[in-house]
Amino acid sequence: MSKFILYGRKIHGGIAEGEALVTRSPLGGFGCFDFDNGQVIDLNHEWYGQSVKGKVLVFTTASGSSAWTIAHQALRFADVAPAAYVVRENNPQTALGSVVGRLPCVAEFDQDPTEVIKNGDWIKVDAERGIVEVTSR
């Protein structure tokens, strides 16, 4: 086990921790989730079949429909929300999505989080300070 820290910018405040779910691709919203269990149902996405519930989601940016924020708010309403967002490039969808999803979100890091964080790493997100602490599995 090794620990390291990434420094970024707070997009939306809060503190959370969880297991990392990582992709080097963008994340969609509309048509992406099964709200009964939080599983990704987008056949084009590498997280297909995996649940986002309780996970720290690590992805490059948001993509697709402007219903992105509706879907990410709905994950909270359906009790299958992730724990936090760790995003390489912030965009309006990740900014608004973390506000209405009420999740900590950090972006614009000193290094690419989608390269250095691996699936299953344990992640502590302190969005207020823009700090993401990674404990390798």
Binding site: I70, L96, V100
Partner: peptide, 20 residues
């Protein structure tokens, strides 16, 4: 529609969500 209005019409918008 966002892509159309920015690109073809030349009006200015980000990709807004329902709430914003």
């Amino acid at each position: 529609a966002i892509a159309y209005t920015n690109s073809v019409i030349g009006a200015r918008t980000n990709i807004e969500g329902l709430h914003s």
